[in-house]
């Protein structure tokens, strides 16, 4: 499923709101997580999971085609770890 399916689902579950608002709700939800992560902050959603930013060290990688060494600089990457609620739901 994708974001529009999610928007439709939220709109259907809440007949009192406009689809436009459902769109906004879903967008603000993901934008808020993005905003937190971009400030290098953690988002902990009990029963769902945790979004956090991990540091990757600088390393020397190789171009698999010609074997040339390429320096990869240190960087931060967003990552997600599932929470207990999710784990339990998927392992019944």
């Amino acid at each position: 499923m994708n974001k529009s399916d999610l928007i439709i689902k939220i709109a259907n579950l809440n007949p009192s709101i406009y689809q436009k608002d459902a769109t906004k709700i879903v967008n603000v939800f993901f934008e808020t997580i993005t905003k937190a992560l971009s400030k290098n902050e953690r988002v902990e959603l009990r029963g769902f999971g945790v979004f956090d930013v991990k540091k990757r060290k600088a390393r020397i990688a190789r171009n698999p085609k010609n074997g040339a060494a390429v320096a990869v600089p240190a960087k931060n990457v967003p990552y997600f770890r599932m929470g207990k609620g999710m784990k339990d739901r998927l392992n019944k």
Partner: peptide, 24 residues
């Protein structure tokens, strides 16, 4: 509504479907 978002994502994953959120 937040709970509904979680529930929908979880139920799709439970069915084995991928959940794709554009720009996320």
């Amino acid at each position: 509504m937040i709970e509904e978002i979680f529930e929908f994502i979880l139920s799709e994953l439970e069915k084995g479907y991928d959940v794709k959120i554009s720009s996320f």
